[in-house]
Design a protein around this nucleic acid. Structure first.
Length: 484
RNA sequence: GGCCCCGUCGUCUAGCGGUCCAGGAUGCAUGGUUCUCAGCCAUGAGAUCGAGGGUUCGAAUCCCUUCGGGGCUACCA
């Protein structure tokens, strides 16, 4: 049975890279008919951010990455929050100590710091000097009695190599002598990541550890831990990092990296998952748009690339536009409604007529939307009592002698229309234009500016139809008479 | 510094010894559709496959060296 886990640390908001890993985990589990597990790695009490765990779960749910075991849903190997499992880590750590595979260390932070400085100054690899590893019983007892705190360090083999197979890179090998006697249990009684993840991955029966490249160098530590504990390690899968435009690890410096930012800006869940799946993975085909179902069908570990990928916000934007165009009108109306309300264009809750109006506007802006948050800007003139007139547009199309006459003719004809629909509106406007010797853009542009305040926008006749006769007549009359 | 990973158009990538004087997408440019914008359609520019050596009849694909980028190097994850 394939069992994978997404194991974030609640130290802040999930960012693009975190969710990309979750996407890989989830896609792999679903492809294999396996189990996707969410485990919270909150063993660093100092960096814990209140609410971060909730945000992680909210983001995953928003993206449709549902977990089969984990917080709020439970499962046979819980709890799935590491701070609730400390006794487990302590038990296994003590077991390692009893077996001589780990030891208590009484060195102070100050001594460790000095040691590191000296090592760096001497140009030597840094790492614990194992002072507490070879203590005699007497020395150990003495230190224990005079020191109230200690950590437990793992006794790494001092020679030989540790090898393991990484699914995306093949066999990797590291010198044991260069590995540190790393801490497995901190002085506050909590485990370090290295220890907690190994204990949990085993106890929770994880078959594949999928985590980003930054963990490769500590994998030999984990492999040795498995060996000391007498456990079989899982398959290791290390996709490459996601980089910022400057090619360094994606971080806050690069701007919008928090996943929630993309939710707020109005990216669609499926578009985000589609885009993230393609960052570091490929189905080996000449295409980019995949439904979630298709991604599940196609996703294999073999398609994961071994080189870093730079996050391309422009391509994401394009892809989101594709998804918006694929969205049904009614659905899109629902999606943009909150944005229109936030901008004060539609009341909360919306009236039936407002809802109806929004639905009529959607077809006109769908092709022009790349993210939902652009909706208010694109549709503002539909809602305002008086549209915001672009001064340059007014100057170019309305502040000319013939404009007033033209607009008047247009309104006159529009008012006489029996049917208010695109065809009738178009005929009326064009005929009015012909009356004053203006055709095509010469009549369309002034009318657009007069009715919407701008030179760009959806097709004029469709726009007028949706605006409705009352608004159109009012705006054209006003613009036609208030010649500057 | 040490250890490790990686290196194909600006970007995401296809490619796993010959069908590649390297394909798709994005972005960019130009043209078409049209009332503008967007969309859509078409065309184009854009990668001597980081570089240098090999192996081979033949290499982006295998080997070595080199350079470059990145990651790790905590009682953080």
């Amino acid at each position: 049975m394939i069992r994978v886990r997404f194991a974030p640390s609640p130290t802040g908001s999930p960012h693009i890279g975190n969710i990309r890993t979750a996407v890989f985990d989830w896609l792999f589990a679903r492809h294999e008919g396996g189990v996707f597990i969410l485990r919270i790695e909150d063993t660093d009490r100092a960096r814990l951010v209140p609410g971060a765990m909730e945000e992680i779960m909210r983001d995953l749910r928003w993206a449709g990455l549902d977990w089969d075991e984990g917080p709020e849903v439970g499962g046979p190997y819980g709890p799935y929050i590491q701070s609730e499992r400390v006794d487990l880590y302590q038990k296994h750590a003590e077991q390692l100590v009893a077996e001589g595979r780990a030891y208590h260390c009484y060195c102070t932070a100050e001594r460790l710091e000095e040691m590191r400085k000296a090592q760096q100054a001497a140009g030597k690899p840094t790492g614990y000097d194992q002072r507490c590893r070879y203590l005699t019983e007497e020395e150990r007892a003495a230190l224990a009695s005079e020191s109230d705190t200690f950590v437990i360090r793992f006794a790494m083999p001092t020679s030989g190599q540790t090898s393991f197979v990484d699914v995306v890179r093949g066999e990797l090998s590291f010198d044991n002598a260069l590995q540190d006697d790393f801490v497995i249990l901190k002085s506050d009684g909590y485990p370090t990541y290295h220890f907690a993840s190994v204990v949990d991955d085993h106890l929770i029966k994880i078959s594949h550890v999928i985590r980003s490249e930054e963990w490769i160098s500590s994998t030999p530590k984990h492999v040795q831990l498995y060996s000391a504990l007498g456990w079989e390690p899982p398959a290791w899968v290390h996709p490459s990092l996601i980089l910022g435009p400057d090619r360094s690890k994606l971080s806050k410096r690069h701007g919008a990296v928090n996943f929630s930012t993309y939710i707020e800006e109005g990216y669609l869940p499926d578009a985000m998952v589609n885009y993230l799946a393609l960052l570091g993975w490929s189905a080996g085909e000449d295409r980019d748009i995949y439904s979630i179902q298709e991604l599940i069908e196609k996703f294999t570990l073999e398609g994961i690339t071994g080189h870093p990928a730079i996050f391309d916000a422009q391509k994401l934007l394009w892809m989101n536009g594709v998804y918006i165009r694929q969205t049904s009108m009614n659905r899109l109306a629902e999606l943009i409604l909150p944005y229109l309300q936030k901008a004060g264009l539609v009341s909360e809750p919306p009236s039936d007529s407002e809802l109806d109006y929004v639905r009529k506007i959607v077809p006109l802006i769908q092709d022009r939307l790349k993210v939902l948050s652009e909706a208010p800007e694109l549709a503002e003139f539909f809602f305002r009592e008086e549209p915001a007139y672009d001064p340059k547009a007014v100057q170019k199309w309305l502040e000319r002698p013939e404009a007033s006459e033209l607009l008047t003719k247009v309104v006159d004809r529009l008012e006489e229309l029996e049917e208010w629909n695109v065809g009738a509106i178009e005929s009326a406007v064009r005929e009015a234009g012909a009356d004053v010797g203006a055709e095509g853009g010469k009549v369309i542009h002034p009318v657009r500016v007069a009715s919407t305040g701008r030179t760009v926008g959806p097709g004029l006749f469709e726009t007028l139809e949706v605006l409705g006769r009352d608004r159109v007549v009012t705006r054209l009359r006003r613009a036609g008479s208030s010649e500057q």
